[in-house]
Amino acid sequence: MPKTENEKGFVDVVNGKYKPKGVFHIPEANQPIFNKDTGKLAGITNPRDMTYMHSYGGEAPFFEGLGKGKLMATRCDNDKCDTKGSIYQPFRIYCPDCLRKNTIIDMTDLAKTTAKIYSYIITHRSGAFNSLPKPIKFINIEFEGVVTILMSVLAVGEPEFDKKVVPIFNTKAPTYTITDLRFVVEGTSESELPEDFTF
């Protein structure tokens, strides 16, 4: 049963501190677990309903960018680094080699023109709290000039190695999570996109 607005927790940052408001946990009584065969007590349930407050820190520009239709990445621009020029997607705040702060770049156009599938898997299974429609088509995406291989999901089309794909973004009702970014096969029309998503 989805929570009502009165049962949810909300948080702002004010003066550098978290300011929670609303409900962050709903108490529920323990229940005994009996062995039906012996009638004896075996254990107890421990219900938990909690909400975490999590900082995106230096990655916040990436997650905020998705809701604006932007795919932000980072690049090492340190002249003294052996791997200078490497572009990272997933977005890395610091270069893994020189540990200098990377430069944030907008790679939306690069993704729209060069993204292709490196690997994929289709699964009908999911864990608790999943919000993606099933089956889930996991894809790993290579971009020209990017040294890493981003994991995402294919929302429209069938995955194949080297198939060209383009990013889509949840710009109408962003959740500010990685699920705001998905991909579709090249040639997909706007009308085929999932609700709230745009190119």
Binding site: I121, R125, S126, G127, F129, N130, F138, M151
Partner: peptide, 19 residues
């Protein structure tokens, strides 16, 4: 942040390598 929200299913993150 980057993987768990995608289905909350570890098999998915692993099986792409198998593929």
């Amino acid at each position: 942040d980057w993987e768990t929200p995608l289905g909350h299913i570890y098999t998915g993150y692993y099986a792409v390598m198998a593929q």
